[in-house]
């Protein structure tokens, strides 16, 4: 692949043409906040945390869906961007009911960690306090809408990796909701293979193992890389 040269935070760097800006920034060891991005899944540019400034454009660009280009001049942590990131995180905290102290994911949560890393010490917005249900119909897992940030990692992993497409979204705007099957209790879904991939990729305490209590839930993403590498190398091709 041809190499492209670009400038990131005033330093000249090179990347592979076709590669996303986010993956290059990661290679360079620049810590970019992300929530909807997960290596191994398709990118959707929804959480807007990885936005960067490109010289010559008034617009901001989500690094996960922006391919690197020759001559790009990128800034990743300007004051403006840092402010926006904090505001976006505050909006997320205000959107649903995040009470970390009583959350099963407390201490292992990507939202909680991003907030702390990005300097969020309080939320300036009204807490919206929506009245949301939990779905505890599945024999192994629990879905708590109160903690969901609509990143759709669960939707994508189930569709793209597991191939079951149990999850999807319904409603729009702030009323969007993750649904199982045709908006039925998760436990009633015939297509769910009970693999638990969605639980493992969920960044927050929205999808958890049944029976876990406050601060007990920890998630493992490495299976994704493992599966994808295995598939690429045809490690399980027994035909």
């Amino acid at each position: 692949m041809p190499v492209v040269t670009l400038t990131v935070n005033d330093e000249l760097v090179s990347g592979q043409s076709g590669q996303s800006l986010l993956s290059l920034l990661k290679e360079l060891g620049i810590e970019m906040p992300t929530l909807c991005h997960l290596e191994g899944l398709s990118d959707r540019g929804g959480c807007r945390l990885c936005m960067v400034e490109l010289q010559g454009s008034k617009r901001l660009f989500a690094a996960c869906v922006t391919p690197v280009q020759e001559g790009m001049v990128v800034y990743t942590h300007t004051e403006r961007l840092n402010n926006y990131r904090r505001m976006i995180l505050e909006l997320l905290f205000a959107e649903r009911n995040h009470v970390c102290a009583v959350c099963v994911q407390n201490g292992h949560c990507e939202l909680q960690t991003q907030a702390a890393k990005n300097g969020m010490d309080s939320v300036r917005y009204d807490y919206l306090v929506p009245d949301l249900p939990m779905d505890a119909s599945h024999e192994r897992y629990v879905l708590d809408h109160n903690r969901c940030i609509l990143c759709t990692r669960c939707v994508r992993v189930c569709d793209e990796i597991e191939g079951a497409h149990v999850w999807d979204l319904m409603g729009r705007g702030v009323n969007s909701r993750v649904i199982a099957g045709l908006n039925q209790p998760w436990g009633d879904s015939d297509s769910c293979t009970k693999c638990g991939k969605c639980v493992q990729v969920c960044p927050t305490g929205a999808l958890t193992l049944r029976g876990s209590t406050v601060a007990e839930m920890e998630k493992q993403h490495d299976f994704l890389k493992w599966i994808l590498t295995g598939r690429e190398k045809k490690q399980w091709d027994y035909s």
Binding site: R44, G45, G46, C47, R48, M87, I88, L91, L92, A94, E95, Y125, D126, L128, I149, L150, L169, G171, R172, G173, V174, N175, S176
Partner: peptide, 21 residues
Amino acid sequence: CMDESCGKCVPCRVGTVQMHR
């Protein structure tokens, strides 16, 4: 706009609700 936001990205989905409030 709040009612019509598709909900994909955070600033529009939640920001418009806060602006409305």
